[in-house]
Design a binder for these strands. Structure first.
Lengths: 157, 157
DNA sequence: CTGGCTGCAAACCATTTGCATCACC
DNA sequence: GGTGATGCAAATGGTTTGCAGCCAG
């Protein structure tokens, strides 16, 4: 059996290189390190997490490069941006074509759980149409307290 | 017929004074000016809008006081905070007990339309419960293009 | 009186940007 | 070799905070 995913030779990696080339951009060492870090990190991570991981692959990656790479990674559907109104945004490696998801966010520990919610997509489109607007995207976010945080403390300090 | 709403003598005003007193806080001139501005401004407004309006009522109101008053106004249900992931938050005077609302946001001009969406509330609670979490709040946001912005330009510059 | 408030200005902090240099293609 | 990319450090901008004086209760 293949040892997890062979880095740098993935189909996804080729797709990303193509995406970049099409825009007349360049597949630099740093950019590919960020790409590799972004698709590898588990769960929801921040730009800072991404920087740390990318640096472990290529010491020369700077914070500015991270922020400059993020729009490319989102644009090429390598990652998805998740903004739950916290102080920083979260990012998430895309596994494949993604159905509409809702975010369940724990108010205590900021843990995010993604839930498929295809009905929501339909609902949002209907609401927009009813107001004569052309729908672009939609977001459903449920704030709640996870088990652990319920036990630890009912309210925030 | 009464001329719109008599300022400073509203039932809402009394309720706010009570809320403040209960917390051992004080109903200062500036704070009441911010209150009056907040409940009076139409539609969705920013902290900066609120500052301008409050200053028109009491010249001495500072930006810091606005930001320090906002949590009180939200906590006493005089206004509601609406965060649609833009660069600044929006606020909205509460008319009465509010049912669950979704926000329809025009990507072109940032105009926000509030839509009743009671179904969402049920849905969010169900999703949270299914994951063993205690639901606190939920938010449905639809980004779209309004009529005017559709005609002006299909995509952002 | 006195502890909560205020204005002012400086601090925050995630993200963005200007600039001189570097390195893909 | 030319243009896009990079690192660094400084800038941004909405919001927060420290501080010394002020004032509501």
């Amino acid at each position: 059996m293949p040892k997890s995913t062979p880095p740098e030779t993935t189909e996804q990696s080729r797709a990303f290189r193509t995406y970049i080339a099409e825009k007349g951009l360049r597949a630099t060492r740093q950019r590919m390190a960020v790409f590799e870090a972004a698709r590898t990190l588990p769960g929801h991570y921040t730009a800072e997490d991404l920087l740390k991981k990318a640096r472990s692959l290529d010491r020369t990656v700077s914070r500015a490069t991270i922020y400059r790479a993020l729009p490319l990674l989102v644009g090429s559907a390598v990652i998805r941006e998740v903004d739950v109104g916290r102080d920083h945004k979260y990012y998430l490696a895309e596994v494949g074509p993604t159905n509409f998801r809702a975010q369940l966010v724990c108010e205590g520990c900021d843990t995010i759980v993604e839930v498929e919610a295809p009905f929501m997509e339909w609902y949002g489109k209907a609401v927009a149409a009813k107001h004569g607007m052309r729908p672009i995207s939609q977001k459903l976010q449920v704030t709640a307290l996870c088990d652990r945080c319920q036990k630890r403390r009912t309210h925030r300090p």
